[in-house]
Design a protein around this nucleic acid. Structure first.
Lengths: 365, 365
DNA sequence: CTGTTAGCGCGTTCAA
DNA sequence: TTGAACGCGCTAACAG
């Protein structure tokens, strides 16, 4: 009760409502006073330092509990220089990529240890600069820049930032920066090898927007894998357009007409794969018996809803987020951040569009 | 140059790398010293206060620029009590709902004015508590709690928090809290009225998981609208299951078998609507000529990729985010936060699944 | 073991 | 118009 009459205005700071009464948040001094000790002792007790009699510690903890005391990370980090906060700057409109990365980053240091300030620049350079300025003012410990759908190199934020920066998903244009990307060639390779293993020999590739390097790299990976195995990739050389299913259907139709013998399709995205499945269905071709299909992204909304469910390549974005965050905090501990582009492995998720008796293809999730 | 020899260790705080040299971030004192003024004067100059000779102001601004000075929001807000930060606590796994809400919240105060700490509890109460604790320690100015896919009331965080809280998308279980939700009944009504207007009279509803109140409310809205218009909703009373397209296809098949005369379908989600479109296509029924279809959520990945593109109900989640943030900051200015559940309007987005000559149905986006 | 003091970086008095 | 001093809430260093 002694904490309301110390002259502090109820309007300052965040107000604490308890049973309708408005109180300012409890401070360390309030806890110390209630426990009958000094601030220093209270601080030690709350932070599990030694040099505190256990009985005293107990009194402090009880007082803190009674007052719903929450130490101000603001004040604490004003001294330590660390805020326990990282920024994520992104252009990823629908969050397909950034959210798994965010989840991974949160996990890297144990949930609750680190908080993430998420800023969406929405493809606007001005907005990006404003967000960056705000993040720096908030003294984030590190920054993860997550590319949007496009994986082309993006402009670097420069080297004269006071904090370590990791570029994820889309690389930085500068080789001095550290960029973590998904290994698109490996993805194409893994897809092709899987199809080869299940006996397919007439394998075609359906690309998305040709201006996306991801689309081309995935094709290159598939092509290289088949060459290694003594086969080759079927393509009429113009299988690129955009990422819509509409375009995917047009491509698939043309492909099936020009190369009716194909027994497998690798698509550059799950959407394109779904488009291929639709066309195959319209034409009465069975999947996977007649034609096997592999998608890319392992996007649950698609892969679990197609007929049959879709085998796909998972980019393991959570792992990317974990790695980004641990590199960031490693740099803060003095380890070298590193530089250049690191390509991270992908994983093949097999479903019924390539292997018929997929046991967990029924309703996984 | 005079700022490196003042005894400050390069290891403290975030280090500033300029051309390979590691420097601590510039402080107000550094700027003041370089400009040859006191900290007080520098502060006034930087914050556009009067009482500073314009020539002095210029010198200060130049010094700040030269040192890449970024005022520490941490230190500033330690005094002001405001951090310019709001927390968003969510369980929305794939971010379909939370990201538009986040975007709206950012916009409410002008981008850059406010930053958002996004925390994903992933449906785990323990993790939620840990996140909440962290957010409170970071002294966020307010909190937005965004429900996951399920719109049932969620447990309140209680009233004894030191900051205002708004529940968005899914309401709080407590009527004392302020909850902003989408008006599902209105959505059902709008869909039904649209179909009625284009001449449909045999309208059926396909629900998702019956345990989701959203699904039931949308049906109620459609039913009430048709009753008002002198019609009625066709339903065999068991059109609920889950939200998968697999289930949607099963429901649609059964519906078309038991009620072959239907000329329109309202689905409780875009996924279910897509499932209905697939079944109609398999059965050779034309959309929209024979059967018109309306989805729900206006989820671009679905509505723009179906054949034909899908008319849908948009919940305007950005507006919800804007409103949530402005309520939060209104409360900080002394306005009453309010309480109870506020249902926000939705918007019908017409595409080719209901109106054939939809002009921008070609490739919007 | 406990209390006291001195900052962390900034904005904001009040004097000069 | 400028400068010096204080305080925001906390931790670390030292004194008792």
């Amino acid at each position: 009760m002694g904490i309301i009459d110390d002259g502090r205005s109820a309007a300052e700071g965040g107000a604490r409502r308890t049973g309708g009464v408005v109180l300012p948040p409890a401070r360390l001094a309030d806890v110390a006073r209630m426990a009958g000790v000094s601030k220093g002792t209270a601080s030690k007790a709350l932070n599990d330092k030694s040099d505190v009699r256990s009985e005293t510690r107990l009194r402090v903890l009880e007082a803190a509990e009674a007052l719903s005391f929450r130490p101000s990370a603001i004040a604490r980090n004003l001294t330590s220089g660390r805020t326990g906060t990282v920024g994520i700057l992104t252009n990823d409109l629908d969050g397909r990529f950034v959210l798994p990365i965010l989840a991974g980053a949160e996990d890297a240091l144990g949930a609750g240890e680190i908080s993430v300030l998420l800023c969406d620049a929405r493809g606007d350079a001005i907005r990006e600069q404003r967000h960056l300025k705000t993040l720096l003012e908030r003294r984030i410990d590190g920054l993860i820049v997550v590319g949007g759908a496009r994986t082309e190199p993006r402009p670097t934020l420069g080297r004269d930032l006071p904090i370590p920066v990791v570029y994820a998903y889309a690389p930085s244009s500068s080789p001095d920066d550290l960029s973590l990307v998904s290994d698109n060639r490996l993805g194409g390779r893994v897809a092709a090898e899987h199809l080869w293993e299940i006996g397919r020999r007439r394998i075609a590739y359906i690309g998305g927007d040709a201006s996306f390097v991801a689309s081309r790299e995935r094709e290159e990976g598939a092509r290289a894998a088949l060459a290694d195995l003594g086969g080759e990739l079927i393509a009429d050389g113009a299988l690129y357009g955009d990422w819509t299913e509409r375009w995917g259907r047009a491509m698939a139709s043309r492909l099936l007409q020009s190369n009716p013998e194909i027994d497998a399709i690798i698509a550059a995205s799950d959407g394109l794969a779904r488009a291929a499945l639709d066309v195959l269905r319209d034409q009465g071709r069975r999947v996977p018996e007649d034609v096997a299909v592999v998608g890319y992204d392992n996007w649950s909304i698609i892969v679990q809803n197609t007929r049959p469910e879709l085998t796909s390549i998972d980019m393991e974005l959570e792992a990317m987020g974990r790695l980004a965050a641990s590199r960031l905090f490693g740099a803060l501990s003095g380890h070298d951040l590193g530089s250049g582009v690191e390509a991270l492995p992908v994983q093949l998720i097999v479903r019924a569009s390539t292997v018929k008796d997929d046991l967990d293809g029924g309703s996984p999730g």
